[in-house]
Amino acid sequence: MIDLVVFTVLWVSVSLLFEWIFHTLVHYGVYYYTATTQAVDGEHAVAFILYVLAPVIAFVVLMLVYDLIRFRARKSDGVLRSRHQFRTNKLFIGIWVLISIGLNLLFFVHPSASALEQMFNSEQARLNRQDLEVDVVARQWQWFFSYPQYGIDDAQDANGNSILYLPVNRNIKFVLRSYDPFHTYAPYSGVIHGFWIPAFGLKQDIIPGETRYMYVHTSKVTSYNVNPMVRVQCTEVCGPGHPFMVAPVNVVSGNDFQQWVNQQKKMEGQ
Protein backbone atom coordinates (compact mmCIF):
# COMPACT_ATOMS: atom_id res chain seq x y z
CA MET A 1 0.00 0.00 0.00
CA ILE A 2 2.74 2.40 0.99
CA ASP A 3 4.40 1.75 -2.37
CA LEU A 4 1.22 2.73 -4.19
CA VAL A 5 0.87 5.99 -2.31
CA VAL A 6 4.50 6.98 -2.67
CA PHE A 7 4.50 6.05 -6.32
CA THR A 8 1.32 8.03 -7.03
CA VAL A 9 2.67 11.13 -5.35
CA LEU A 10 5.93 10.85 -7.26
CA TRP A 11 4.07 10.17 -10.49
CA VAL A 12 2.00 13.33 -10.18
CA SER A 13 5.11 15.39 -9.50
CA VAL A 14 7.11 13.89 -12.33
CA SER A 15 4.15 14.36 -14.68
CA LEU A 16 4.04 18.02 -13.76
CA LEU A 17 7.78 18.25 -14.31
CA PHE A 18 7.41 16.71 -17.77
CA GLU A 19 4.50 19.04 -18.58
CA TRP A 20 6.72 21.96 -17.66
CA ILE A 21 9.62 20.64 -19.80
CA PHE A 22 7.33 20.10 -22.78
CA HIS A 23 5.76 23.50 -22.25
CA THR A 24 9.21 25.08 -22.41
CA LEU A 25 10.00 23.11 -25.54
CA VAL A 26 6.75 24.14 -27.19
CA HIS A 27 7.27 27.72 -26.14
CA TYR A 28 10.70 27.68 -27.77
CA GLY A 29 9.17 26.11 -30.87
CA VAL A 30 9.38 22.39 -31.55
CA TYR A 31 9.68 23.08 -35.28
CA TYR A 32 12.47 25.59 -34.56
CA TYR A 33 11.23 28.06 -37.17
CA THR A 34 7.85 28.36 -38.84
CA ALA A 35 6.78 30.58 -41.71
CA THR A 36 3.35 29.23 -42.71
CA THR A 37 0.07 28.53 -40.95
CA GLN A 38 0.50 24.86 -41.87
CA ALA A 39 3.74 24.66 -39.90
CA VAL A 40 2.01 26.25 -36.91
CA ASP A 41 -0.76 23.62 -37.16
CA GLY A 42 1.88 20.90 -37.14
CA GLU A 43 3.52 22.42 -34.09
CA HIS A 44 0.17 22.45 -32.31
CA ALA A 45 -0.29 18.75 -33.11
CA VAL A 46 3.14 17.93 -31.66
CA ALA A 47 2.38 20.03 -28.58
CA PHE A 48 -0.97 18.32 -28.03
CA ILE A 49 0.55 14.85 -28.22
CA LEU A 50 3.37 15.81 -25.86
CA TYR A 51 1.02 17.36 -23.30
CA VAL A 52 -1.32 14.36 -23.29
CA LEU A 53 1.50 11.81 -23.21
CA ALA A 54 3.51 13.51 -20.47
CA PRO A 55 1.80 11.51 -17.65
CA VAL A 56 2.25 8.30 -19.65
CA ILE A 57 5.94 8.95 -20.26
CA ALA A 58 6.28 9.95 -16.62
CA PHE A 59 4.55 6.75 -15.53
CA VAL A 60 6.84 4.43 -17.46
CA VAL A 61 10.06 6.31 -16.75
CA LEU A 62 9.25 6.67 -13.07
CA MET A 63 8.17 3.05 -12.85
CA LEU A 64 11.53 1.95 -14.27
CA VAL A 65 13.51 4.13 -11.90
CA TYR A 66 11.28 3.35 -8.90
CA ASP A 67 11.47 -0.40 -9.48
CA LEU A 68 15.24 -0.26 -9.84
CA ILE A 69 15.63 1.50 -6.52
CA ARG A 70 12.75 0.26 -4.38
CA PHE A 71 12.61 -3.41 -5.37
CA ARG A 72 16.32 -3.94 -5.70
CA ALA A 73 17.44 -7.21 -4.11
CA ARG A 74 19.92 -6.56 -1.35
CA LYS A 75 22.45 -9.18 -0.38
CA SER A 76 21.63 -8.69 3.31
CA ASP A 77 18.07 -9.92 2.81
CA GLY A 78 19.29 -13.46 2.47
CA VAL A 79 16.25 -14.72 0.56
CA LEU A 80 16.08 -15.26 -3.16
CA ARG A 81 12.41 -15.11 -4.08
CA SER A 82 10.01 -12.26 -3.73
CA ARG A 83 7.31 -12.62 -1.09
CA HIS A 84 4.77 -11.20 -3.49
CA GLN A 85 3.81 -13.75 -6.09
CA PHE A 86 0.79 -12.72 -8.11
CA ARG A 87 -0.14 -13.62 -11.66
CA THR A 88 -2.59 -10.91 -12.47
CA ASN A 89 -4.36 -7.80 -11.29
CA LYS A 90 -7.60 -7.29 -13.17
CA LEU A 91 -8.00 -3.67 -12.09
CA PHE A 92 -4.52 -2.63 -13.25
CA ILE A 93 -4.79 -4.52 -16.53
CA GLY A 94 -8.28 -3.16 -17.14
CA ILE A 95 -7.22 0.44 -16.57
CA TRP A 96 -4.10 -0.02 -18.68
CA VAL A 97 -5.98 -1.50 -21.65
CA LEU A 98 -8.81 1.05 -21.50
CA ILE A 99 -6.43 4.00 -21.22
CA SER A 100 -4.26 2.82 -24.08
CA ILE A 101 -7.32 2.32 -26.30
CA GLY A 102 -8.75 5.65 -25.18
CA LEU A 103 -5.54 7.58 -25.80
CA ASN A 104 -5.08 6.11 -29.24
CA LEU A 105 -8.66 6.84 -30.24
CA LEU A 106 -8.20 10.37 -28.92
CA PHE A 107 -5.05 10.86 -30.98
CA PHE A 108 -6.80 9.51 -34.02
CA VAL A 109 -9.65 12.00 -33.62
CA HIS A 110 -7.35 14.81 -32.63
CA PRO A 111 -4.83 15.76 -33.92
CA SER A 112 -4.74 13.13 -36.72
CA ALA A 113 -8.19 13.40 -38.28
CA SER A 114 -8.98 16.94 -37.24
CA ALA A 115 -5.70 18.47 -38.36
CA LEU A 116 -5.84 16.52 -41.59
CA GLU A 117 -9.37 17.78 -42.15
CA GLN A 118 -8.13 21.32 -41.65
CA MET A 119 -5.36 20.69 -44.16
CA PHE A 120 -7.74 19.25 -46.74
CA ASN A 121 -10.03 22.23 -46.28
CA SER A 122 -7.22 24.62 -47.07
CA GLU A 123 -6.75 22.73 -50.32
CA GLN A 124 -10.31 23.10 -51.52
CA ALA A 125 -10.65 25.25 -54.57
CA ARG A 126 -13.53 27.33 -53.23
CA LEU A 127 -11.30 28.66 -50.49
CA ASN A 128 -8.35 29.29 -52.70
CA ARG A 129 -9.52 31.49 -55.50
CA GLN A 130 -6.73 33.96 -54.83
CA ASP A 131 -4.03 31.29 -54.88
CA LEU A 132 -0.69 32.21 -56.26
CA GLU A 133 0.23 29.30 -58.48
CA VAL A 134 3.85 28.19 -58.65
CA ASP A 135 4.77 25.42 -61.07
CA VAL A 136 7.58 23.40 -59.61
CA VAL A 137 9.50 21.08 -61.89
CA ALA A 138 12.11 18.79 -60.38
CA ARG A 139 14.74 17.11 -62.49
CA GLN A 140 18.00 15.47 -61.61
CA TRP A 141 19.37 17.70 -59.93
CA GLN A 142 17.75 21.04 -60.15
CA TRP A 143 14.55 22.88 -59.29
CA PHE A 144 12.65 25.03 -61.78
CA PHE A 145 10.09 27.51 -60.54
CA SER A 146 7.68 29.18 -62.91
CA TYR A 147 4.81 31.55 -62.26
CA PRO A 148 2.18 31.05 -65.00
CA GLN A 149 -0.01 33.88 -63.64
CA TYR A 150 2.86 36.31 -64.13
CA GLY A 151 4.44 34.83 -67.23
CA ILE A 152 7.72 33.92 -65.52
CA ASP A 153 9.17 30.77 -67.02
CA ASP A 154 12.21 30.09 -64.92
CA ALA A 155 12.91 32.17 -61.83
CA GLN A 156 16.66 32.65 -61.40
CA ASP A 157 18.99 34.77 -59.36
CA ALA A 158 21.93 36.73 -60.74
CA ASN A 159 24.14 33.61 -60.78
CA GLY A 160 21.66 31.59 -62.79
CA ASN A 161 20.59 29.48 -59.80
CA SER A 162 16.91 28.75 -59.32
CA ILE A 163 15.20 30.84 -56.67
CA LEU A 164 11.74 30.89 -55.18
CA TYR A 165 10.04 34.21 -54.36
CA LEU A 166 6.69 34.24 -52.57
CA PRO A 167 4.48 37.06 -51.32
CA VAL A 168 3.57 37.05 -47.64
CA ASN A 169 0.02 36.32 -46.38
CA ARG A 170 -1.06 34.59 -49.55
CA ASN A 171 -2.29 31.11 -50.31
CA ILE A 172 0.27 29.42 -52.46
CA LYS A 173 -0.52 26.46 -54.66
CA PHE A 174 2.54 24.49 -55.68
CA VAL A 175 2.02 22.32 -58.77
CA LEU A 176 4.64 19.60 -58.56
CA ARG A 177 6.00 17.59 -61.48
CA SER A 178 9.11 15.51 -62.07
CA TYR A 179 10.57 15.49 -65.58
CA ASP A 180 13.41 17.05 -67.50
CA PRO A 181 12.17 20.04 -69.50
CA PHE A 182 15.36 20.05 -71.60
CA HIS A 183 15.29 16.39 -72.58
CA THR A 184 11.69 15.53 -73.27
CA TYR A 185 12.76 12.67 -75.55
CA ALA A 186 13.43 10.65 -72.42
CA PRO A 187 10.10 10.89 -70.61
CA TYR A 188 10.87 7.98 -68.32
CA SER A 189 14.17 9.22 -67.01
CA GLY A 190 12.51 11.10 -64.16
CA VAL A 191 12.86 9.86 -60.60
CA ILE A 192 11.04 10.61 -57.36
CA HIS A 193 12.00 13.85 -55.65
CA GLY A 194 10.74 15.37 -52.44
CA PHE A 195 9.63 19.02 -52.23
CA TRP A 196 10.30 20.35 -48.77
CA ILE A 197 10.71 23.79 -47.29
CA PRO A 198 11.61 23.06 -43.65
CA ALA A 199 10.12 26.29 -42.32
CA PHE A 200 6.85 25.62 -44.15
CA GLY A 201 6.07 22.53 -42.10
CA LEU A 202 5.14 20.03 -44.79
CA LYS A 203 6.45 18.24 -47.83
CA GLN A 204 5.24 16.27 -50.81
CA ASP A 205 7.06 13.74 -52.90
CA ILE A 206 7.15 14.48 -56.60
CA ILE A 207 6.46 11.35 -58.60
CA PRO A 208 7.28 11.11 -62.31
CA GLY A 209 4.13 10.73 -64.36
CA GLU A 210 1.94 12.40 -61.75
CA THR A 211 0.96 15.97 -61.04
CA ARG A 212 0.68 16.65 -57.36
CA TYR A 213 -0.19 19.71 -55.33
CA MET A 214 0.89 21.31 -52.11
CA TYR A 215 -0.83 24.27 -50.47
CA VAL A 216 0.60 26.67 -47.93
CA HIS A 217 -0.33 30.02 -46.50
CA THR A 218 2.74 32.15 -45.93
CA SER A 219 2.66 34.00 -42.64
CA LYS A 220 5.86 36.00 -42.26
CA VAL A 221 8.40 37.93 -44.28
CA THR A 222 11.58 35.90 -44.23
CA SER A 223 14.27 34.44 -46.44
CA TYR A 224 17.11 31.95 -46.62
CA ASN A 225 19.44 34.64 -45.30
CA VAL A 226 17.24 35.23 -42.26
CA ASN A 227 16.94 31.52 -41.46
CA PRO A 228 18.41 28.72 -43.55
CA MET A 229 15.32 26.61 -42.87
CA VAL A 230 13.63 28.80 -45.48
CA ARG A 231 14.96 26.80 -48.40
CA VAL A 232 13.68 24.26 -50.88
CA GLN A 233 15.33 20.95 -50.16
CA CYS A 234 14.93 17.67 -52.00
CA THR A 235 14.10 15.03 -49.41
CA GLU A 236 13.76 11.88 -51.48
CA VAL A 237 17.05 10.36 -52.54
CA CYS A 238 17.35 10.95 -56.28
CA GLY A 239 20.94 10.04 -57.15
CA PRO A 240 24.38 11.53 -56.60
CA GLY A 241 23.20 15.12 -56.96
CA HIS A 242 20.52 14.75 -54.28
CA PRO A 243 22.23 16.89 -51.62
CA PHE A 244 22.75 19.65 -54.17
CA MET A 245 19.03 20.02 -54.92
CA VAL A 246 18.66 23.08 -52.75
CA ALA A 247 17.17 26.44 -53.64
CA PRO A 248 16.84 29.52 -51.45
CA VAL A 249 13.36 30.89 -50.71
CA ASN A 250 12.36 34.49 -50.14
CA VAL A 251 9.01 35.40 -48.64
CA VAL A 252 8.51 39.13 -49.27
CA SER A 253 5.81 41.77 -49.00
CA GLY A 254 3.29 42.18 -51.83
CA ASN A 255 5.06 45.26 -53.21
CA ASP A 256 8.48 43.65 -53.14
CA PHE A 257 7.04 40.60 -54.85
CA GLN A 258 5.57 42.74 -57.66
CA GLN A 259 8.93 44.47 -58.04
CA TRP A 260 10.70 41.14 -58.26
CA VAL A 261 8.17 39.92 -60.86
CA ASN A 262 8.86 42.94 -63.04
CA GLN A 263 12.59 42.46 -62.71
CA GLN A 264 12.37 38.78 -63.61
CA LYS A 265 10.24 39.52 -66.64
CA LYS A 266 12.75 42.09 -67.78
CA MET A 267 15.56 39.55 -67.36
CA GLU A 268 13.68 36.88 -69.26
CA GLY A 269 12.71 39.35 -71.97
CA GLN A 270 16.36 39.97 -72.81
Binding site: A45, I49, P111, S112, L202, K203, T235
Partner: peptide, 13 residues
Protein backbone atom coordinates in the same frame (compact mmCIF):
# COMPACT_ATOMS: atom_id res chain seq x y z
CA UNK B 1 3.83 11.54 -33.65
CA UNK B 2 4.91 10.09 -36.98
CA UNK B 3 1.61 8.25 -37.29
CA UNK B 4 -0.05 11.65 -37.34
CA UNK B 5 -0.13 12.73 -40.99
CA UNK B 6 0.26 16.45 -40.33
CA UNK B 7 3.43 15.89 -38.29
CA UNK B 8 4.60 13.17 -40.65
CA UNK B 9 4.53 15.53 -43.61
CA UNK B 10 7.10 17.70 -41.84
CA UNK B 11 9.31 14.99 -40.35
CA UNK B 12 9.21 12.36 -43.12
CA UNK B 13 12.64 11.72 -44.69
Amino acid sequence: MLADPVINLQTHD
